[in-house]
Design a protein around this nucleic acid. Structure first.
Lengths: 122, 122
DNA sequence: AGGCATGTTGCCTGAGGACTGCTACAATCG
DNA sequence: CGATTGTAGCAGTCCTCAGGCAACATGCCT
């Protein structure tokens, strides 16, 4: 009943919109800078693409570039694997299989041991 | 100078061929069981697809099925992320970013601490 | 030798993805 | 008010992917 469209949280679009606004760009301004039409950008931000899926990886790339954002963050929101991550994963697959099989809580604790930082309250 | 074709080690094709032979299938026997033409299978095994890339995820799936192989293993060889892994990664992206940024040796040691040993025969 | 099963390769095509490029419309604002 | 902005629909384009097909080579068996 819901291929996507309604109800889906849409983190990517929201993030892009926020970035765009923070730069003071309108859709019509930004579009040519990343080489697409403004109406397409609108659809991206609202997660209203004709088909089901994300915009191309290369568009994400250009957006990160122009909006001076963290490319990997955007890639992940669009459900693309950043290159560096992909390399590591496919290089040591079993290792990551082990990790993904861990219960989330344990995984989190393991990582927090490695990397102390990362807290919530500001 | 080398889009791919030559020199690439081709782990996926080799693995599929091994599995196929171990089941005593010829290309022509196996092909209909996974719903593709035998010549396409040959290309898959030899990594001679027209373009650069892997066969479809769904073909990998059917191959794992028919050949009674570990699906995730094949998916990873074909550079597809197994669903479970993808879910975890996109669910907790920063966590995996941290992990992939670790030097390989450290990552390995961390994991081996979690999972004692992959070791040993029954 | 012939025949047949097997594997390899090059060209071809159909479907779908990633957009373009309009157009029209509603809301906002200065 | 007019100008700017965002939303939406839809036809049409271009390209890549995934696989099909026919022809070819090679081996093996009696």
């Amino acid at each position: 009943m819901n291929t996507k469209a309604e109800s889906r949280t849409n983190a990517l679009g929201d993030r892009i919109r926020a970035l765009r606004k923070s730069k003071g760009y309108s859709l019509r301004k930004l579009a040519p800078l990343v080489g697409v039409g403004f109406s397409y950008l609108s659809k991206v931000e609202n997660d209203r693409l004709d088909f089901d899926g994300s915009p191309s990886e290369s568009l994400i790339h250009r957006l990160a570039d122009v909006l001076e954002a963290d490319e990997d963050e955007l890639l992940l929101l669009a459900r693309y694997l950043p290159q560096a991550m992909a390399d590591r994963i496919f290089e040591q697959p079993e290792l990551f299989r082990t990790l993904t099989e861990l219960p989330p809580s344990k995984l989190t604790s393991v990582v927090s041991r490695i990397k102390p930082r990362k807290r919530s309250p500001k």
